[in-house]
Design a binder for these strands. Sequence first.
DNA 1: TTCTTTCGAA
DNA 2: TTCGAAAGAA
Lengths: 260, 260
Amino acid sequence: MLEARLPQAALLKKIVEALKEMVNESNFDCGDSGISMQAMDSAHIAMCSLLLRSEGFEPYRCDRVISLGLSFSSLSKVLKCAGNDDVVTLKAEDDADTLGLMFESPKEERVSQFDLKLMDIDSDHVSIPDQEYDCTVHLSSAEFARICRDLSTFGASVVLDATKEGIKFSASGELGRGGILLKQQGSVDDSSPTSTRIEMREPVSVTLSLKYLNIFTKAAPLSEVVTINMSSEIPVLFQFSIGDIGHIRFYLAPQIQEDD
Amino acid sequence: MLEARLPQAALLKKIVEALKEMVNESNFDCGDSGISMQAMDSAHIAMCSLLLRSEGFEPYRCDRVISLGLSFSSLSKVLKCAGNDDVVTLKAEDDADTLGLMFESPKEERVSQFDLKLMDIDSDHVSIPDQEYDCTVHLSSAEFARICRDLSTFGASVVLDATKEGIKFSASGELGRGGILLKQQGSVDDSSPTSTRIEMREPVSVTLSLKYLNIFTKAAPLSEVVTINMSSEIPVLFQFSIGDIGHIRFYLAPQIQEDD
DNA sequence: TTCTTTCGAA
DNA sequence: TTCGAAAGAA
């Protein structure tokens, strides 16, 4: 059986809000080391994965591997019933057909118990090799979300150009064109965790669908920093940390650049 | 004739907002002791009543009994023209076909006068006996509203189980099931007026329509506490106090519990 | 489904 | 205080 207690319901709420726009339902694989999930969007274009390490729960107990087929919209509805500061406890028996969620208010005068029906979901579990990337950019997730939203006005796709100087986002369309450059912050001014930082082997330029990037940025409330890992020709990885308990990763293949 | 002056238009606004979703039009009975109203919803399932004592007005004058047939949506529109801190004066001649509403801004630099047409409404005035109830629960009206809204996700009806320990709300449906327990607060910690308190002769369990409860909770802005009076088999009474000038009461018959 | 209204966040 | 997002009503 699984039993996992998380002191802040807000965290779980944000995780589900971050993923529900991209994935309708998915299997949550619970094991010794924690909970993980992996899914593609319904069009099978982008992929996401979630990792929540057992150390992030107190306590965490999972005797044997369990796969919980959950609907994100149902999960979201149930989590709307939890206060942000509630303590959440997840429980599932082996071979259970429901997931139990208990919410306890901080003062313990209110206890809610929900039992969510589980689904049988065929999961096409693609294994993702741990990739070396030509370029890794750390930047403010709020800034990234803002840029993707703003550039959506101009076109359906954005070009990311990463050099040692900084990362540039550009889009063009009927209105005209737009470009936003985030400069790498000098090492002296490295104080802020949300400063733009770039590690690179060589410059990379990729074209990506803004529709998907705007879906990924729903994860911005989870982490103030997003890490973009890029090489030409292979899917770009966007990673949002979840405290120090895990992360959400999004993968999106670059579009073939057509010169016009 | 009627002449009644209320120092806070906000109060009257909240009263009308609380009732207008349930009742389209109704007779306001004005007499010596104050203003009262009683109506059923259009489906004749739930009932509500309003009492505003004459002592709550300054001054209050009503020589003879007048019945004012008012449309709640019209009344709501007119009250939208009043500032929250305006002083309201209601005036109606005997046998008048309009109700006069005067709004005076606090600094008296602005005076608005509205005359609302009255309607001829057949009222089936049901007399409600003052009932003894097996169980009375006082709880935060905001919390109650939140619970009814949350549980609407799960099903169309909610089961209320009141015991000495607390009151439990549960609902179930396609998603799964949900239950919320509010514990009775210890008498030591009785400081907060919105703490859950229960007075009972014996435990009560009733099933109620969430659709109606969600209509009743529109009255939550009037009072931070709602009082639920229950016995098995007879209509449940929900009471929201209006300062110390009166109250709104809602009555809803329990559904027959079907065991499956 | 769309619009309005309300609530929370910046 | 202003803005945007989310909830509720038409």
